[in-house]
Design a protein around this nucleic acid. Sequence first.
RNA 1: GGCCCCAUCGUCUAGCGGUUAGGAUCCCAGGUUUUCAUCCUGGUUACCGGAGUUCGAGUCUCCGUGGGGUCACCA
Length: 462
Amino acid sequence: MVVTRFAPSPTGYLHIGGLRTALFSYLWAKKNGGKFVLRIEDTDKARNSEEATQAILKAFAWLGLEADGAITYQSQRDAIYKKYIDQLLKEGKAYKCYMSKEELEALREEQIANKQRAKYDGRYRDFDGTPPAGVEPVIRIKAPTSGAIVVNDGVKGEVVFQAEDILDDFIIARADGSPTYNFVVTVDDALMGINEVIRGDDHLSNTPKQIVVYEALGFDVPKFYHVPMIHNQQGKKLSKRDGATDVMEYKAMGYLPEAMLNFLVRLGWSHGVQEIFSMQEMIELFDPKDINKSASIYNTEKLDWLNAHYIKNTPNDQLVELLHNFDLVLTSHDKKEVLLDALKERAKTLKELSEMAKEILNAPNEYDPKGVKKAFKGDAIEILETFKAKLQAANNLHLPTDYHHLIEEVVNEKEIGFGKIGQPLRICLLGKLGGPGLDVVMAIIGKEETRKRIEQALKALA
RNA sequence: GGCCCCAUCGUCUAGCGGUUAGGAUCCCAGGUUUUCAUCCUGGUUACCGGAGUUCGAGUCUCCGUGGGGUCACCA
């Protein structure tokens, strides 16, 4: 069974890049009928917070991603890590190093001065004398000093590291006894049964160290997939400074989770020429072998397009619900269907949709000067008066077609084009040019409101 | 700097030795529309450079250049 994981450290919100690797992991597990598990890497007490964990869970919930089984918290697993450290110590695969931080620093500086790689020199590797007083030892693992470590990566292919280039006896437990990252990641992944690791390729250079731990502990090495980074416009790793990188910001801006997921799945992954993927299709079609090898630049143009697409395809009753978050309550509005049908075609976000709806629902409190100048030429006012008279005389105005007939009558009688009446009427009703069909607008606001807006505009512009 | 990864339109990408190098987005033009948007049609734009292998290279090899990642008693 395929078991994948997402293992964030809760230092803040769920990041776009994190979400993408989480999504890939989720899809791959689901496709294989496996499990996708969540592990919170909260060992750095200074930087982690419970709120951050909740924020991540909230984002997952919004997107409909759900982890299988209980969430693992590293902070609760000290005893487990200690057990495996003791085991390595006992087996002679790890040892206590009494070198002080100062000594280590001095060694490092000397090596750098000699243009050598900064590297622990292994001085306590085979030490069996009397330890120096007053130094709490760290635990170091015995890493190979020669030979190659090969990572058989599902995205990058075979990546070979020379042990002498990159390895030294790295620390697996600090002086205070707490285990370090590469050690706990390995122990947890192994114990949790993770056999396919999909993560950012910034972890690729950690992988040999983790392999050293896997082998020392006698665990199976999982299959790794190192997914290329998402870069900002400057081509650097995406960070908080690059605008919206918090997934939940997109919810606030009026993006749909389907659009977000579809957008992210296509960043670094593709399936032929297909652009639109439902969750079901993603699960069916996703395969990490189709992940691109090169980094991509974060650019949300396509997200807007996708979002517009998904808004168009969202049923109106669902839109009504979603729009509650954008200060628009249409629940009991009798023309909500007409309104939403007209607006969902032209909104890129829910926020935009809400704003456009309000522009129709509320009478304009100003008139776009450029629009006025363009529309109020010739006998515009006379035409509007004629229309108003017809409006007042008419009965049974309900549907857009009812209003359309009304406009038609004026057009026919006066022998003018639709634009002659449409443009000035638009100014009256909406305060500007552009927007949905006028028949639709009038059907939404009704006869009385239409009349009022025409009068109001005539008074203001005459 | 050492090590590692990467390199096709502005952006996301297809391509897996033989294609007029395809799609999407963006942008532009035309059509539809009383207007705007949607929608439809069309258009501009790309194989980082150099050697080699081959009858033939975007595709394979090497070198260069460029970009990125990583080098902690952080995760």
